[in-house]
Amino acid sequence: MITYLEAIREAQRQALENDPRVYIYGQDVGAFGGAFKATKSLAQSFPGRVLDSPISEDAMVGSAIGAALQGMRPIVEMQFADFSTVGFNQIVNQAATMFWRTGLPCPITVRLPSGGTPGSGPFHSQNLEALYAHYPGLILMTPATVEDAYAMLLEAVAIDDPVIFCEHKYLYYHLKADSLPKEALPAGKARVARAGRDATVVTYSAMVHESLAAADELATEGWEIEVIDLRTIKPLDTDTVLASVARTGRVLAVGEAWPWGGVTAEILARVAAEGFNLLDAPPMRLNSKDTPVPYHPNLWGTHRPTARSIADSLRVLLRS
């Protein structure tokens, strides 16, 4: 068995093994192996290529950009996605604009340990995919499975553009698979995680699993729910979403991130604009509450969507 976290480590090991241009840079990623041990033993296996950085997110990303311009393929580990806002300027203004302005690609991968876990609180729980997806020039990956965590991270390193890789901390240890994949869907292609005919849930990252659990619950009531795992937020696979809505006539978009201007809003805007006549009911969405992420598990469990709240939303959708 291999966990989601181990898959991320193995992908990095593979990338270092395959490509001498790859190096890893981040806080505590060297001999210590990273705050979550995503780089455990890599510094020992690849001397000089897994480097501890000072606590300087701006300079971490800025230097990765410079190295990429000189032909390297850096992987930057943010200790938590939340801290990437300190490096935000370099990501959105330097990396994301580089190819458009100069014609020179900027192949960096920035790993963002994202999402909530019990007790993590306002500054160790955030989901920032919508923030980065807003900017042209970036690729946004949000793997929901062990297989995708591995395959998409390897793909991220190979892509010539800056990739923001949102790996979900809640899945690090919870999620296990028998083995690593030999092939994978490409970036930009969504996956039908569960087939159904009564309603479509469009979601990504950890919410795929909450949505699948909700679909199990609804199945006991006789409903067949289709669950789409977007895999990449940008590019967004609108075709797969619309094809599913064409089958079910009902759509619920679910995201763990905040509601305002987020990924779920983008999904529903596209469904409404391009698939209005496919809908048998008003489209719905479910996000976390519009407050900072709370610390206490009692509050956190209500703050974010869960299998129960997704199931409740689906019941409303199915009756409308």
Partner: peptide
């Protein structure tokens, strides 16, 4: 090519020099 955000180019130079070291 400078971006307008002051100080932002310095770490890019650092990264290019780190690349030279790797290479």
């Amino acid at each position: 090519p400078m971006i307008s955000h002051l100080g932002a180019m310095v770490s890019v130079v650092n990264g290019m020099l780190m690349a030279h070291r790797f290479q």
